[in-house]
């Protein structure tokens, strides 16, 4: 039974290309209003999953639904709620930006508010002159901006974005993050794949890490960060010898006469008592990065 309350509901989804299993019994649910990061190395199965959601690919088994509408049997209704940005934009270089936006509006079947479109165009700093130029004259970044505008222009309930900030300069990335925040505030759901981990950490509520077509990590961003070990640098007033036994979850990385560098996995609650009897001069804790966790999952999944 597909859940109508979820924006995306995937059950036992499998896609095989001959002997190659691109997506392997994938289960996933994305709630309404959530910004969901879909992560993994190249070839992990992210794009295949996205293309099944859009009914571009047909699953070998399992099912996927968007707002309760099955992506195969009821795909028109499922797709009517979606705005999509592909990883690679297939556009005709002899068309202008205006022509392509109008064409996508007409085939989209939804009326696009000219004010909303104007707002998007302004956010991404495309002028009327830019949009009147042939796409062959566009830079990669400009094509990306056009892709984002077409994905957002009908104000869809669900945005499926494949590598949205690729080729965007830092200023435009900021504009995109603001746009994403606006969409989230208006209750829109975002399902995005990205290789830019700081970006994921910044904008996503939850993440799924895919490896060889399987979900190897499904967590909130905060929860994933907690899985990371933190580095603790302790500087002493005098030379201090390393104790024979370290508390559980502690690992000594580097020892200098007056400095230790420790890797602490888990919570830091035991740190004060561990250091209480030692002549500590200074203490620095490096914030755990999502990147550290994800890289580990990427590596483990690739093996």
């Amino acid at each position: 039974m597909l859940s109508g309350s979820a924006a995306i509901s995937i059950r036992g989804l499998t896609k095989c290309y001959g002997k190659l299993i691109a997506v392997d019994r994938l289960d996933l649910e994305v709630s309404r209003g959530e910004v969901f990061g879909f992560l993994g190395l190249n070839g992990a199965g992210k794009t295949t999953t996205i293309r099944i959601l859009l009914d571009l690919l047909r699953p070998t088994s399992g099912s996927a639904a968007v707002f309760g509408h099955d992506c195969q049997s009821d795909s028109l209704k499922a797709r009517s709620a979606v705005g999509y940005l592909p990883g690679e934009m297939g556009i005709y270089s002899d068309s202008t930006g205006h022509e392509m936006l109008s064409f996508w509006e007409r085939v989209g079947g939804r009326i696009v508010s000219s004010e909303h479109r104007r707002n998007l165009i302004e956010r991404f700093e495309l002028s009327d002159r830019d949009l009147s130029r042939k796409l062959r004259e566009y830079s990669t970044g400009m094509k990306r901006k056009l892709g984002l505008i077409q994905a957002f222009q009908a104000d869809p309930l669900l945005l499926i974005l494949d590598e949205p900030t690729e080729s965007l300069d830092p200023l435009m990335q900021e504009s995109f993050y603001e746009l994403l925040a606006d969409a989230r505030n208006r209750g829109r759901t975002v399902f995005m794949s990205s290789h830019v981990l700081p970006e994921v950490e910044r904008v996503c509520d939850r993440i799924a890490v895919l490896a060889k077509g399987k979900v190897v990590l499904l967590s909130s961003v905060e929860g994933a960060r907690k899985l990371a070990s933190r580095r603790v640098r302790v500087t002493f007033q005098q030379e201090t010898s390393v104790p024979a036994h370290l508390p559980q979850g502690y690992e000594m990385i580097d020892v200098k006469p007056r400095t230790w560098i420790l890797r602490v996995t888990g919570q830091l609650g035991s740190l004060p008592s561990f250091l209480a009897a030692l002549p500590v001069a200074d203490l620095a804790v490096e914030e755990a990065r999502l990147e550290d966790v994800l890289v580990k999952y990427y590596r483990d999944g690739a093996e």
């Binding site: 009914d55 999509y84 592909p86 297939g90 085939v107 079947g109």
Partner: peptide, 14 residues
Amino acid sequence: ETGFIDLVLARPVA
């Protein structure tokens, strides 16, 4: 082949 149809069929187009 060019990917053009992705953006068409990602919309409610049969």
